[in-house]
Design a binder for these strands. Structure first.
Ligand code: SF4
Ligand code: SF4
Lengths: 160, 160
DNA sequence: GGTAATTAAGACCTTTTTAGTCCTCTTTTC
DNA sequence: GAAAAGAGGACTAAAAAGGTCTTAATTACC
């Protein structure tokens, strides 16, 4: 139940590019140094992000990586799934029809909902959001007013 | 980013005990057969649940396992964490103070919130809930009116 | 008290995944 | 054409997942 390093590094790396601005080519080396990520590992990760159309690469002298789109249009979920594959809390939620008996078991329904909640927040948080000042980000994330705003949400479950 | 088989089996196994009722000793063998879980693997899992005070064991002839408390007082989160350890989306959220630089990085704040949402639903769903008819469970889970009820929540993000 | 049935405990095993590295291309700029 | 990037693929070590197996310790019942 943990995000892999690869996924984590992908988000950090992409956020790093977001901070540099669109169109500015940044070398792997620079990103690695800034975010403390092993160089050849990040190279692999950025390769995958390139294929996924999230970043663009430029070879040769003065080459590097840059975001393929404005950072406000790239969600954290998108980056994560480009590396880890589609988010699935349970193997049975990846490919359906593996339910051995369609009787009264409701476990996958619970998993689906939990997963949905994660997708909700990850899918509505963009790289641009992550580059904003901490206080602002916290307020946005915890306020619960995502892009379909529905007021401040209850925080009564803090202790759970 | 997946729940392990052990965690999954733990919930299924405990739910199976919940269906039999409090105090009724059920042998591992029976649970395994019903839920399609390898016998010796479930034995290990139930052993851990026993130590965690979630189930009670009885050795010898006519022995078996039973829930240690009413099923309505045992949350899915509790069972899951007894097996997998405390839920943590990122290694850095398990033990704090591993933040190499406390600068403007807000990634862990996002992870914390995502994790919180999972705890919210897993922590408010009990084994008793899982034994109820499917339609009823779905309604409860998706309605969003958990034990601190705050009305039906927006489902606009269905497509995310 | 003996025996059969049941869980407890821990050592052990195999496969898969994670977290990388390394080497050889290819592309691009100067 | 030389130097400086990334692309691609093969490879690897360590850890985690997903179990099994064997030897106890209990307990009910005859
Ligand atoms: S809902 Fe229950 S029976 Fe169906 S696939 Fe999920 S765990 Fe298995
Ligand atoms: S908030 Fe950012 S810098 Fe701090 S531990 Fe998390 S990822 Fe690292």
């Amino acid at each position: 139940m943990q995000i892999t390093r690869a996924g984590e590094y992908a988000i950090m790396g992409a956020t790093c590019l977001a901070r540099r601005g669109l169109g500015k080519a940044v070398m792997i080396h620079e990103v690695c140094k800034e975010e403390h990520i092993p160089r050849s590992f990040l190279a692999k990760i950025f390769q995958a992000l390139t294929k996924a159309g999230i970043v663009r690469s430029q070879r040769g002298i003065r080459g590097g990586f840059t975001l393929a789109r404005p950072s406000a249009e790239i969600t954290v979920l998108e980056v994560l799934e480009a590396i880890e594959g589609k988010l699935a809390f349970d193997r049975r939620l990846q490919e359906p029809a593996s339910c051995h008996d369609t009787h009264a078991c409701t476990l996958c329904d619970l998993f689906t909902e939990a997963q949905h909640r994660v997708r909700e927040i990850m899918g509505s948080t963009t790289l641009a959001d992550l580059t904003r000042p901490k206080a602002e980000v916290m307020k946005r994330i915890q306020g619960g007013n995502l892009h379909n705003g529905n007021g401040p949400r209850a925080r009564a479950l803090q202790t759970i």
